[in-house]
């Protein structure tokens, strides 16, 4: 349903997205996971037609976004990261506006407005001005505006940023419902737990490039049985040689004067021996992470997902 082929977007010498390739099938949620500035929004903007790619092409429902924009956009729903609402209008008025923007009219439009209000749990507040909504309610309304026309492909750009747990649950539930109805969903986030819960497949993006693609299990398997150990303290003058020689499954990720990161098998069992090799007071903080998307991201990029 969504096909991205060799997508590249450049601003002068700066490359915001480079050779991005992936497909999202009907009834599938594809997560684009990466820190802020990794290139997620650029990719979304190129897919939605807001930006023209420097190279490559995007197809929505087999229509090229640059060549057959009207047909492509007709199959597409967009829930942007920034709210796109009139705060001085009420929820129903906003939905009415966006429904007409997507060509809905008459009784069907009213029916859809009622349905999405139920879906995001805002039916009781439909006649209240958006300015009186909480941040989470605004996010839910923003989401509702993007699904009014029952798009075949839906782009969700960080839809849960800054929302309360109740609203997050509403939104994630609604996304799962859309997937069940056969919608192809491209979901960008930097929340690992959301990606693990929702996404059938995940593309990890950093510095404009997709550095890993696969299901959650496939990506986890890239970590093997190793855990991620992060030590913080003063490591100037200390060499990693001993660790490489004596820690089982040692794999160095990062060695900085204040931070050391490495992979190790059964980290919990080895930790006391490892810490014993450092002079007293050298290590000030210790963290052990089991294999997950975050530790994979750190393994792949050397930095944290929320940097």
């Amino acid at each position: 349903m969504i096909k991205v082929e060799a997508l590249t977007k450049k601003y002068g010498d700066f490359t915001a997205a480079e050779d991005i390739n992936f497909e999202v099938h009907a009834g599938e949620i594809f997560g684009l996971l990466g820190p802020n500035g990794a290139g997620k929004s650029t990719t979304i903007n190129c897919i939605s037609g807001l930006m023209v790619p420097s190279e490559g092409e995007v197809y929505i429902n087999q229509h090229a976004v640059t060549g057959d924009a009207i047909q492509a956009k007709a199959s597409l729903g967009l829930v942007p990261q920034d709210l796109a609402l009139y705060e001085d209008l009420n929820g129903a008025e906003n939905l009415n506006f966006w429904a007409q923007a997507y060509g809905l009219s008459g009784q069907f439009m009213q029916q859809r407005i009622d349905e999405v209000l139920q879906q995001v749990g805002l039916a009781a507040r439909a006649k209240d001005r958006v300015s009186t909504y909480s941040g989470g309610m605004k996010r839910r309304l923003n989401f509702a505006c993007g699904i009014l026309h029952q798009p075949k492909a839906l782009l969700l750009d960080e839809p849960t940023v800054g929302v309360d747990p109740q609203s997050r649950e509403h939104l994630l539930g609604a996304v799962e419902q859309l997937k069940a109805q056969g919608t192809a969903v491209l979901y960008t986030t930097h929340y690992m737990e959301e990606a693990e819960r929702l996404c059938d497949r995940i593309g990890i993006i950093d510095h404009g490039k997709i550095i890993a693609v696969g299901s959650v299990d496939e990506l986890r398997s890239q970590m093997g049985e190793k855990d991620l150990i992060t030590l913080q303290g003063d490591f100037s003058g200390v060499e990693p040689d001993w660790l490489a020689a004596h820690v089982a499954g040692f794999e160095l990720i990062e060695w900085q004067p204040q931070t050391v990161r490495f992979m190790a098998e059964q980290a919990a069992e080895q930790l006391s021996a490892i810490l014993g090799r450092f002079a007293t007071g050298t290590v000030k903080q210790t963290a052990v992470q089991q294999a997950n998307l975050e530790s994979l991201f750190i393994k792949l990029t050397g930095r944290e997902l929320r940097d």
């Binding site: 939605s48 037609g49 807001l50 924009a69 009207i70 047909q71 956009k73 007709a74 597409l76 967009l78 942007p80 920034d82 709210l83 796109a84 609402l85 009139y86 705060e87 966006w98 923007a101 997507y102 060509g103 505006c145």
Partner: peptide, 11 residues
């Protein structure tokens, strides 16, 4: 307020 960018993503 994001209305125009979002409108640009419609047909």
């Amino acid at each position: 307020n994001g209305v125009i960018p979002r409108l640009a993503a419609t047909p």
